[in-house]
């Protein structure tokens, strides 16, 4: 693999000369890596929609889609083709440029944030020091796409992550995962008890519930609540523009699950320090954990009735923010005591 990379870099230098060769090579390599990350992501999004319909179907004792392909496996492709050929209706009063730009603005941050997500030790597109800040900055741009979203859950999500920063003392996502490999329980081989979810359990819950709200998923999907408001892209968008919005939402779901995995569930680390489990590549564990969190998203949707808007507000402002601030102070004090589990 390294030889192949070196050979390709050599070709680049030969074609573009010693001055322009290396920059061109870096550009091409980054472009290819971006494609390697985003294309499978699109596939995941497509099949997440199928998984959602199937899982919720089984939870409600239905079969779910089963007509297109074996066991309905080609359903997402049929859906995509259908959306592509549907007519694109632009409301007469809308600014055409902004109308088409909005769905892209939701999708782009959800994809751009993946640049700093580590898929394994050393396997990351851009290993920047302020990785977490980068993710938060990029995702905060997503609000412009769906300007109707945003009930200040941003702040709760951010606060919850501050505790993780405190215990891992780094903004680099790879360092945060590596920090979870140490600890009292990890020394005895029970790695999964050393991950951040246990000592920061309230923060994990706050983060995950805020994440569900942030991605406008049930039971916080007020944007879809027929009884209160029928606003936003569900009404005005059609065809491919709707599909891009939809894609952005599901890509965001995968992104917040990946972040939760890295922050609280030990990223690519195996749950128990056993030779058999260590032999399995870290990527598998990462995907398994992300998959579990995504299953929780669907599980919530099939289980809980929708919250009313004022109930969401109360939960965010009067429960989560105070809880997070208290826990932040508590953790900071805890780290100064001899019982500090993060040494």
């Amino acid at each position: 693999m390294n030889e192949l990379v070196a050979t390709l870099a050599g070709y680049s230098s030969a074609w573009f000369g010693p001055q322009w060769g290396p920059p061109v090579w870096v550009f091409v390599k980054t472009l290819v890596l971006i494609l390697v990350i985003t294309l499978p992501l699109f596939g995941c999004v497509a099949y997440l929609t199928l998984a959602e319909r199937k899982i919720i179907g089984y939870m409600q004792v239905r079969i779910g889609p089963n007509r297109v392909g074996p066991a309905g496996l080609l359903q997402p492709i049929a859906d995509a083709v259908k959306l592509m050929f549907k007519e694109l209706i632009i409301p007469a009063g809308a600014n055409k440029f902004l109308f088409v730009l909005a769905p892209m603005l939701t999708l782009m941050p959800a994809l751009a944030a993946w640049a700093v997500i580590p898929f394994g030790p050393e396997v990351v597109l851009a290993d920047v020091d302020a990785g977490l800040l980068y993710v938060m900055a990029i995702t905060s741009m997503g609000v412009y796409g769906v300007i109707i979203a945003g009930w200040a859950s941003n702040s709760t999500m951010g606060f919850a992550l501050v505790c993780v920063l405190l215990v891992s003392q780094s903004l680099n996502l790879s360092d945060i995962v590596n920090g979870q490999a140490r600890g009292r329980f990890a020394a005895e081989g029970l790695n999964f008890l050393s991950w951040n979810w246990l000592p920061l359990l309230p923060m994990f819950l706050v983060y995950f519930i805020s994440a569900v709200a942030e991605t406008n998923r049930a039971p916080f999907d007020v944007a879809e609540g027929e009884s209160e408001i029928v606003a936003g892209f569900h009404v005005e968008y059609s065809g491919m523009t709707f599909a891009v919005f939809f894609l952005g939402e599901y890509a965001n779901m995968i992104l917040v699950s990946a972040l939760a995995t890295i922050m609280f569930l030990g990223g690519w680390l195996p749950p128990i320090d056993a030779p058999l489990l260590n032999a399995i590549p870290g990527f598998f564990w990462l995907v398994l954990k992300i998959g579990f969190l995504l299953f929780c998203f669907l599980w919530f949707r099939a289980t809980f009735p929708r919250y009313r808007y004022d109930q969401i507000m109360r939960l965010g402002w009067k429960v989560f923010i105070p809880l997070t601030i208290v826990w932040l102070v508590l953790v900071a004090a805890w780290m100064q005591t001899p019982w500090n589990p993060w040494q």
């Binding site: 920047v128 020091d129 302020a130 800040l133 980068y134 938060m136 900055a137 990029i138 905060s140 741009m141 609000v143 941003n154």
Partner: peptide, 15 residues
Amino acid sequence: APFAAALEVILYAGA
């Protein structure tokens, strides 16, 4: 100043 840059985006542009 990556930290200031991130804050600029999160606070001003994002909020």
